[in-house]
């Protein structure tokens, strides 16, 4: 009987309690594990909140860095910079933090901030990623209207296999294939449609030339034939097409230039993203 009871007790206590019933979800260790999981699951906001709950744990110098990374990845750049700049000098991620500050300024399109931080702080404190920092510093000139450094100086930090692409970015920036909106307008004022052809819209240019010409001829012809009502209608139509064509040529040149700028910036950003803004892979998650 006794043995039976003991067996019963044993069975109940093992079968009904498969998990520790007093599990502490909020111990610093478990918060850390959960935050790491969220980080790798790309749930960065929750991950940052969890890391912040245990920030200050002695002996752990990666928390501040990971918090900053989380903010950077959810595009909360100001908090990211704030946290990167608070990473302790003794931390294993100190050099990485300064490089990440440069990257974050880039992501914020704050190119003057990139240069200011690089010249005033980065070159003095970063011992590990000087070349990467210099690359970002040089890249910042490709995004602004400031005078470019000499080509040879500009290419120094880049590897040989990168220099071809960087040179083409540099040349493009130095001499962008813009079209003059003033010239386009004047051309269309002299010969309707020619401004459009100059901008590259050949089909539109030919149509504008023909339509304006035909309406002008019809206006003249109707005045000659004393059909004044129709003559004025055709005059108005010709004037409308003529004015529209001059305005359209100026606008087309402006649109062309904006498009050129947009594509150039997109290519630059895509290139930087491909190279992860020259920041290393930290290996916090398997798939990173």
């Amino acid at each position: 009987m006794k043995a039976l009871i003991i067996i019963l007790l044993l069975v109940v206590s093992t079968a009904v309690k498969p998990q520790d019933k007093t599990f502490n979800f909020n111990s610093p260790q478990n918060i850390r594990k959960f935050a790491d999981f969220l980080f790798c699951d790309k749930d960065y906001l929750r991950s940052a909140i969890e890391y912040q709950r245990i920030h200050g744990t002695p002996g752990d110098d990666t928390l501040r860095f990971k918090i900053a990374l989380c903010f950077s990845r959810i595009k909360n750049y100001l908090d990211a910079i704030d946290n990167f700049s608070k990473v302790n000098q003794t931390s294993a991620y100190y050099n990485e933090s300064t490089l990440e500050i440069l990257k974050t300024n880039f992501l914020m399109d704050n190119y003057y901030g990139v240069r200011k931080y690089y010249l005033n702080e980065f070159v003095n404190i970063n011992t590990k990623y000087r070349n990467e920092g210099k690359k970002l510093f040089n890249f910042s000139y490709l995004f602004t209207e400031d005078p470019l450094p000499e080509m040879n100086d500009f290419l120094i930090p880049f590897d040989e296999n990168e220099q071809g692409q960087i040179s083409s970015f540099y040349n493009w920036k130095k001499d962008p294939p813009y079209k003059s909106s003033l010239l386009a307008g004047i051309m269309s004022a002299v010969i309707p449609g020619s401004g459009k052809i100059y901008v590259g819209e050949v089909g539109d240019g030919i149509v504008a030339f023909l339509v304006t010409g035909v309406f002008a001829f019809l206006a003249y012809d109707n005045f000659q034939a004393n059909h004044t009502t129709r003559a004025w209608i055709f005059t108005a139509a010709a004037a409308l097409f003529y004015g529209g064509n001059v305005y359209g040529s100026v606008a087309a040149a402006q649109v062309h230039n904006v498009k050129i700028d947009f594509e150039y910036e997109e290519n630059l950003k895509r290139y930087l993203e491909k190279h992860n803004y020259y920041t290393p892979n930290y290996g916090f998650c398997d798939e990173e």
Binding site: I5, L9, V12, K17, D20
Partner: peptide, 22 residues
């Protein structure tokens, strides 16, 4: 006393654990 012990254990075992609370 064995019955009481068994009863207590049974109640305890089926009681709310941390996972239920979570």
């Amino acid at each position: 006393s064995l019955i009481i012990l068994f009863f207590l254990l049974f109640i305890d075992a089926f009681g709310q654990n941390s996972f239920d609370e979570q």
